[in-house]
């Protein structure tokens, strides 16, 4: 059996008096696109946050290689976000004050890459996702689909091991959503990046190799991994 890239076991997360997760376990395999579906409020976003190291679970463990993300400190988890992981949310992940180019270059700039080098990679990824023409615009000046493609470029610019996408097409019409999903899946497959894709939309989940469904804070079903991840 393939060793998972990230494995969550028995995650519990409480917000106030509500339990977002009540013992959720999930494996994200290297190079696969895994869809996590479920009704709203089922805890799928919280599961993604925990596996991406954005939020620390109250109980349970998240393994990334030999590392325990649930125990890693704030700095280590921040560093991982600009080296090994990328995130794409429904909205809000771009800095409204920065141009698309600066936004994409941001993880590199934060890691101390020179401005010229960071902008060069950022430009390459913007072109790759067809939004190089928007490089000088700020998120408020772009269409939703363009903004999400800029967010994709940002998630991919560090050549991450995994991209965490939480309803990346949630605010888009279906054609713009199709473009974003196609771009994401193609780019991920080409670079061997795993994608954890949270969505409530089966048509979006159909871009993934496998599906896991979440209900009431636990993973209800998880497709068996294919013998080998195709393509």
């Amino acid at each position: 059996m393939t060793t998972p890239l990230i494995e969550a076991r028995g995650l519990v997360k409480r917000y106030g008096t509500t339990d977002a997760l009540r013992g959720a376990s999930l494996r994200l395999l290297p190079g696969e696109v895994l869809a996590v579906t479920g009704p709203s409020g089922s805890g799928k976003s919280t599961l993604l946050h925990c596996m991406a190291g954005i939020v620390r679970p109250d109980e349970g463990e998240v393994r990334y290689g030999a590392e325990r993300l649930d125990q890693a400190g704030e700095n280590r988890r921040s560093t991982l976000r600009r080296t090994d992981f990328g995130v794409v949310f429904q909205f809000g992940q771009l800095v409204g004050e920065l141009t698309a180019l600066d936004n994409v270059a941001l993880p590199l700039l934060l890691a101390g890459t020179s401005r010229a080098a960071a902008h060069k990679s950022a430009g390459t990824w913007l072109e790759r996702f067809g939004v190089l023409g928007q490089a000088g615009l700020r998120p408020g000046e772009m269409s939703g689909g363009q903004g999400q493609r800029v967010a994709l470029a940002r998630a991919m610019v560090t050549a991450p091991k995994a991209v965490f996408a939480d309803e990346p097409t949630g605010a888009l019409d279906s054609l713009a959503g199709e473009q974003v999903m196609t771009a994401l899946v193609h780019a991920a497959r080409e670079s061997g990046t795993s994608v954890l894709l949270v969505t409530h939309d089966a048509q979006i989940a159909a871009y993934a190799d496998r599906e896991a469904t979440v209900r009431d804070g636990v993973v209800e079903t998880e497709d068996e991994p294919a013998a080998e991840v195709t393509r």
Binding site: S78, T79, G92, Q93, E97, L106, P107, A111
Partner: peptide, 15 residues
């Protein structure tokens, strides 16, 4: 919101 976006992009709290 801006600080949160920076953190999401991998900025440490210190940065």
């Amino acid at each position: 919101r801006r600080f949160a976006a920076l953190r999401l992009a991998g900025a440490t709290p210190r940065q």
